[in-house]
Design a protein around this nucleic acid. Sequence first.
DNA 1: CGAAAATTTGACATGACTCAACTGGAGTGG
DNA 2: CCACTCCAGTTGAGTCATGTCAAATTTTCG
Lengths: 189, 189
Amino acid sequence: MIARKIFKGLDLSKEEFDLISSNFEQVSYRKGDIILKIGEEVPYQYYVEDGCLRTFFEDKKGKEHTLQFAVKDWWISDYTAFINSRVAIMNIECIQDVILHRMTYEQLESIYREVPKVESFFRRKLERAFASFQNRILSNLADSAQERYLSFLKTYPEVDRNVKNYHIASYLGITTETLSRIRKRLAGE
Amino acid sequence: MIARKIFKGLDLSKEEFDLISSNFEQVSYRKGDIILKIGEEVPYQYYVEDGCLRTFFEDKKGKEHTLQFAVKDWWISDYTAFINSRVAIMNIECIQDVILHRMTYEQLESIYREVPKVESFFRRKLERAFASFQNRILSNLADSAQERYLSFLKTYPEVDRNVKNYHIASYLGITTETLSRIRKRLAGE
DNA sequence: CGAAAATTTGACATGACTCAACTGGAGTGG
DNA sequence: CCACTCCAGTTGAGTCATGTCAAATTTTCG
């Protein structure tokens, strides 16, 4: 029963867990699969049971930029498009084989109605995501590429273990060459 | 009755508006006043009736960076510190004389209890703030300083009218000199 | 093993920064 | 009403971090 795992912080009855679980649908994808494309509707948000994904987009020059990663026990979607019923402004790609549990917005709302505690759970989740975006902006304003890389490693060691360096570079806003030079500099210390 | 202005989108009774209004306290400050300092408790969030403010911090080199501006009809606080009862990680400064309406977290929660519709109002507000942070990250990743400046002007013309160029530079993550050169380049087109 | 993918390295280009000097406008006070 | 000061903004010259492009090397994986 996946809901126990997803909402493990919440004190709910077996019936409530069952009811929530019935709103999730398990899906699996292979490494390299794109499960959401820019311009498409965003029917789902996904809970990651296993594997690793990222959201990314291409700028006018065709360069890829990564907005977010998701590893085990995280959520992923084009969140603002998902909640506002707009089309996606970024792609979601599986960096590894993944097992996901997805739900629609209607299902989310129905859970809110049936099990109100879940709404606070998601509000806290949004607040944490908001804080992490804020930290990223502050870090972009104040820190060098090397400092941003170090704080990435410190904050998301689990992500570092699962993604390629060029993914990290595209998340930090630097080139793979620059990241490689930073790593060399750090190694020789 | 300030609540009518603040929550003008909501369909509430006179009693509800009164009840909400009783939780706000009006305060005024002069241009240049710092109304929250890094390291302090964050007792309030503020609704801006008039004037302009910003949140900012200093990096290790003493350089100032602006996270957010707030003009008429916006809200401002160190939001993540406010909701988590942590100490401020940024300062709030009045860029002009301001008239504000402030509330504590306890007052916010009491309004949630008495007038549940207000909770959705704040959730949407948080979602929009989240989306705007996201846009800023995307823009940092993909756009040049000049493009970021142009999209700032387009997105926040009201802010542009009320702040100095060096405030804008510290928001965009560039120096005043660079902003000046960008403006010159744009003027000659 | 061999091919493709990822990373590293080198040489060079460039956008933004630093520091210092200068300009122009908005007060202020004699 | 002028001289003075202060502040914001501009300009110039030199520097630095990061980007670009091309090639070499290492790693991954079928």
